[in-house]
Write a protein that binds this DNA or RNA. Structure first.
Lengths: 367, 367
DNA sequence: TACCGCATAGAAAGCGCTTGCTACGGCTGT
DNA sequence: ACAGCCGTAGCAAGCGCTTTCTATGCGGTA
């Protein structure tokens, strides 16, 4: 029924070993023999049995890319970039020689699914795994992840982090490419402060996500440095500041709906807000909609800012002030790292700069 | 080094066969034995060797989802929905029992890569394959695809089409869920005609893509039915109509940049245009930017419409008139079909309705 | 009491490939 | 002219699992 290596060997009048070597190209085979084998492969329409091959060789050509939300271009762009580096050009002959199978796995942000996918990938003896985007900070989960990754690395799977902070003990990992979320967040808020804003609302991402925390910390660093939230360091002062921070921060998922709802909430809590900083561009879009539905103008009445600089942000009206993350470049680099085509940065850790993009959605507050 | 079935068997003091049966749960095993085995599995931190298992059982738990552009939420939404049906909830125990590994593969719209991925999936003896989105209409490629899919089906892989028209001879396929692109396109243009528009520009997708052709045909059907492009059926008249159609149509990729450039081109060719229909929402966003950069207002000077109703479309300013496709539902259904959890529609073909969403970006043309 | 059948466990034969080792010419070097 | 090599090809032993077939022990029944 199905064609096997042995069939090809018979037709080419060579041993199975020779066919295998022709196909893998890691052993000298005379040109004439090779040609005969290749013709037999074509004639018989032979397709390698992946499982058998992986079993015998104890490795597979699977590369897994884990993303938190596949419907979010933030991940799509990174994953796509990584795939271009991993998949190779593809010759269309259907022969697929030397290709790796780059596949993306959607965790939906669930720690359990993240672990499950890792196990599944481990089962397949994946050649490499790329983890993208923020991590969940729950200690139990972090420990489980670290253990799992260590085991993967042990089994020869290359592990690369992309847009995710390094592990506590990062030995298991080939490389970690971390975005400068904190710095980006800080510069964004500094921009707003420079424009003269003082009461700034913050629509944050889900709690316990590193991305969320880092961006928020950047924001608060800037606020604190400006003496906002007060620099009253007495116990009472600190409490008051904390209350202030909390009042002006709302957490929610990274989607437009959350941005919409949170902004309405912020507006209710503090009508005097003159700017809203969103956890990312998608959230910013929802925030903008809420502001407009409230009958307010952007940026005249309220400034809005996002994060990521996704492609649609420049088309928002007005164009969104945001922080650009080089998602494509980072994804591509992660792909190369996973393939061993690029040497890891010193220490295995690289921080990727975030660039402030000032556009029309931010302006000085009205007097 | 690595733990094998035999190690588990030894520790549980049973035969490897018994361990295998406990893990696969398709053979009676006494409760006490099962428990002993399970404990041994946990103690040893055993992870099944996927390749070995697939080799012996001649099937794998891989399910491939092919998408044209992973950075496009159009595909992300479908793929994510399909994955939720396939991956199961995941128990977080890391045991990953009975799970399928749903993976998405990004073809980038390239026929060669599409074929390559199919070969790679065939190699892995994938349990199922879901093809999403429009197909390329090149006859050679179509034939190659049909052959490849037939071979996959032959090998026991379930093939499901989602948002893609059925194959010429669809026997190889479990089911085809096709969007009513033509009907949606027609109703969208009828809406514009009803508003009073007569000179309507069309920013189409890439040529040779089924999606592109169907949406465009819907548009032209509506135009023709309204007597636009003339109903002159003489040879000369037909030629004139065709020229008119071509002058008001520009093709390009499904991205914002293409929408921007094409709209500028359309405006140059025919300054009297009162509406622009875009191939999809992303393109519509680019088109809107171009219109605004030209100093024109939407919808007062020019109406704009998209297709797909992606989440961001409602947040555009003004909100985008578009055609809603139930992407999530379709993806989920494709996932269930791929898992054999749902019986295929009669004839294996289902057409999925497209619903017109009238919003602020379209209005009657100025007198 | 003797027999049959069911429930459960084990033995062993592969699944299709990779790869270390061996075998065999013909060439080169002295 | 002979030894030693290099370049190729084949042999055969697994890789770790699934599954068919067989073995065993037990309870129930005649």
């Amino acid at each position: 029924m199905t064609v096997t290596l042995a069939d090809v060997a018979a037709r080419a009048r060579v041993s199975p070993a020779t066919v295998s070597r022709v196909l893998n190209g890691n052993y000298p085979v005379a040109a004439s023999t090779r040609e005969r084998v290749l013709r037999a492969v074509d004639d018989l329409d032979y397709v390698l049995n992946g499982p058998a091959s992986s079993l015998a060789a104890a490795t597979s050509d699977l590369v897994g890319i884990l993303v938190n939300d596949i419907a979010d271009p933030f991940f799509g762009i990174m994953a796509g970039a990584a795939q271009t580096e991993i998949g190779g050009p593809g010759d269309g002959s259907g022969r697929a020689g030397g290709e790796k199978l780059a596949v993306v796995c959607n965790t939906g942000g669930s720690p359990a699914r993240e672990l499950t996918y890792l196990t599944l990938l481990q089962r397949q003896r994946a050649a490499a795994v790329i983890l993208t985007g923020g991590a969940v900070e729950d200690p139990a989960h972090q420990a489980a992840m670290a253990a799992k990754l260590a085991k993967l690395a042990d089994a020869g799977t290359r592990v690369v982090l992309c847009g995710r902070p390094p592990l506590p003990e990062g030995e298991a990992v080939v490389a970690a490419l971390a975005f400068d979320n904190r710095g980006g967040g800080r510069r964004l808020t500094e921009h707003l402060l420079t424009l003269g804003h003082r009461r700034i609302g913050y629509v944050a991402g889900p709690v316990e996500r590193t991305t969320t925390r880092h961006r928020l910390e950047g924001h608060r660093d800037a606020m604190a440095a400006a003496g906002l939230y007060g620099d009253d360091t007495t116990t009472e002062g600190r409490l008051a500041n904390a209350r202030d921070e909390d009042r002006l921060t709302v957490h929610g998922p990274y989607d437009r709906r959350s941005g919409y709802d949170a902004t309405l909430e912020l507006l209710r809590r503090e009508p005097e807000v003159t700017a809203i900083v969103a956890a990312n561009d998608t959230v910013a879009l929802g925030a903008s909609a809420a502001i407009r539905d409230r009958g307010l103008r952007i940026p005249e009445d309220i400034s809005v800012a996002g994060f990521d600089d996704l492609p649609f942000s420049v088309d928002a009206v007005p164009a969104l002030t945001t922080v650009r993350l080089p998602l494509f470049e980072a994804g591509a680099r992660a792909g190369r790292l996973a393939m061993g085509k690029e040497t890891p940065p010193p220490g295995g850790i690289a921080t990727i700069a975030a660039e402030l993009m000032v556009r029309g959605s931010t302006a000085p507050p009205r007097k």
